[in-house]
Amino acid sequence: MNDGAVDDGSKDGEVLNGFRALLGEDDLSCTVSDALGRGGALEAHVRPVWPGARLVGPAVTVRTFGTDLSAVFDGIAAAAAGSVLVIDSHGVSNSAFWGERTTRAALARGLAGAVIGGACRDVVALARLKFPVFSTGITPNAGLPGGRGEVNVPVALGGQPVSPGDLIVADENGVVVVPFARTAQTLIQVRALLQAERDLLARTTDPALLQPEGVS
């Protein structure tokens, strides 16, 4: 298992930087999903909190307990710059596990964003601070500290398993999880798919030719 948190010029760091360089591509998450065999995406109700939010980074995972958000702050403290906090709130939807205070703490650590299988709050502040957050809902209710929960353990949210170090790619279309072991090959495929898409759209508008492969 790789914690995905160190960008040190290693091969892993080169792959991560390669994905980061593509973040400006329109609809990058769609291409990444295509490279994963049209899979890897969290369920459709995991949405950006503010329009235009985008992120790429290795996952630091958090599993909360009840409405306790202590582990969220523990995860922020444990995360290296460029990481994405991925929070599994085990179905709790009436308490927020993210807000302005967590955002400011995450910004101070240099985190790339947060993905929450649960709710957040303070959405006006999040938009103003331009911190990318994706969640399944919004509620004014705040979670409470209690000292429970876990950090950097396997979690599941939005119908997808996420392990520490897996690559998270998210934009206006949603969130995609790239298993750590597949990141290098996926980057190669994504680059090839992006170029093929450019070439195809530049030469034709024929609906027969624009169908995805495998469609008849």
Rank of each mutant, 00 (worst) to 15 (best):
G110I: 11
L42S: 02
S89F: 11
R38C: 08
V15A: 03
L200E: 02
A35F: 01
T136E: 14
G39N: 09
L194T: 09
A79R: 02
L126I: 14
C120Y: 10
G110S: 09
E197T: 05
L23R: 14
D122S: 08
L194H: 03
F180V: 11
A80G: 15
L111M: 08
P140Y: 15
V56K: 07
T139G: 04
L69H: 13
F131A: 10
L111Y: 02
P58H: 13
G99C: 12
F97V: 11
G40W: 00
V62R: 02
R104M: 07
P161A: 02
S135N: 05
D12G: 12
V151L: 02
V190A: 10
N141M: 12
D206A: 03
T204Y: 06
G52F: 01
S70C: 03
A184Q: 05
R38F: 10
C120I: 10
I87D: 12
E150R: 11
Q160M: 07
V92S: 07
D88C: 07
L55P: 13
A71T: 08
V6F: 07
A44W: 10
V153N: 11
E25T: 12
D88F: 11
S163R: 15
E150D: 15
E14P: 04
S163W: 15
G18K: 03
I168Q: 06
E150W: 12
V169R: 02
V123R: 06
R38W: 03
E25I: 11
T183I: 05
V92I: 15
P207T: 06
N141D: 07
A71R: 00
I116A: 09
A53D: 10
R121Y: 00
A170C: 11
C120T: 09
R198N: 02
Q185W: 05
T204I: 06
A105W: 11
